[in-house]
């Protein structure tokens, strides 16, 4: 325990120092997190303006007004920043140019250093983005009523972040076989857009999409914490939601272990 604590503390220190060195660079990457949710918000605000009021999904009975959309997409923006992971996109480059080889020589699994740099990125950029988030809340006047259940969003956020991280790392290990991962990543991104409620709140989607989303890992690491924080979830869906997060986390960890073990045998260190 002490060992892991020291390991992560040392890694975090190094990562944070290097993030602060390149603060402008990482800030520009972090701004990507604004783009998606704010575009979705603009689209749905325009739709509700065209309808002249709240949008009601006849199939599910859910209703969203302009300020409900602001609440949903603002909270989504912050939560998805806190749960984000980019390893699936970066790992293939490391395999292509042989950068992975030195990392493999170290006595600890490379995932730990990457996880530290993920946490460091979130800590440093969240501190930088906090004023912008507050400003957006003031400007967009979201309709938020915090309830007691909103606190549960914190463990849901942590589980969701862990799930996304492990799942993306498994996806990244596919690069051991294929080297090119654009198509796989795009598939992941497409599924994530719909099933994680990134493009629209799930409550406004066709029922069959919601059905798939509910059992998919994407909702568990996407809109589930957001819906929890905003009190959109009926009480009887909270516990099953957490159970699904844990089940998917276990599955993802198993998948990662299996993929990594056979992948590392496959690895022939290109370019080194």
């Amino acid at each position: 325990m002490q060992y892991w604590f020291n390991l992560y503390r040392a890694n975090l220190k190094v990562s944070i120092a290097s993030m602060l060195q390149y603060r402008f660079t990482i800030l520009i990457w972090a701004v990507w997190g604004f783009v998606g949710p704010l575009i979705s918000l603009a689209v749905w605000t325009a739709v509700s303006a065209a309808r002249g009021g709240a949008i009601v999904n006849k199939a599910s009975g859910a209703s969203f007004g302009a300020r409900d959309f602001s609440a949903y997409f603002l909270v989504y923006m912050i939560f998805s920043h806190l749960m984000m992971s980019w390893d699936a996109f970066e790992f293939a480059f490391r395999i292509q140019n042989g950068q992975l080889s030195p990392a493999l020589l170290k006595p600890v699994h490379p995932i730990h250093r990457d996880a530290s740099s993920n946490i460091a990125f979130k800590l440093t950029t969240s501190a930088m983005l906090l004023p912008v988030w507050i400003l957006l809340f003031v400007l967009l006047k979201p309709n938020i009523h915090l309830t007691f259940e909103s606190i549960l969003a914190i463990p849901a956020l942590l589980l969701g972040g862990a799930l996304r991280y492990v799942l993306q790392y498994s996806l990244a290990s596919i690069a051991f076989w294929t080297t090119r991962v654009e198509a796989i990543n795009q598939l992941y991104f497409s599924l994530d857009s719909f099933l994680a409620g990134r493009i629209a709140p799930l409550a406004l989607m066709p029922l069959w999409v919601v059905g798939i989303a509910t059992y998919s890992p994407f909702r568990a690491m996407g809109s589930f914490p957001v819906e929890l924080a905003l009190g959109h979830l009926p009480a009887d869906q909270i516990l099953p939601g957490f159970a699904l997060q844990i089940v998917w986390l276990v599955v993802a960890a198993g998948l990662f272990k299996a993929l990594w073990r056979s992948g590392i045998r496959q690895y022939s260190s290109v370019g080194a």
């Binding site: 979705s40 689209v43 749905w44 325009a46 739709v47 065209a50 309808r51 949008i55 654009e182 198509a183 990543n185 795009q186 598939l187 991104f189 497409s190 857009s193 719909f194 493009i199 629209a200 406004l204 989607m205 066709p206």
Partner: peptide
Amino acid sequence: ASLLGLLTTIGGLSIAYGYTSTL
């Protein structure tokens, strides 16, 4: 990859246009 991306954009748009005829 680009067909999948296209599918995502069009899917998102058709959900939005399910609630309105013009944006």
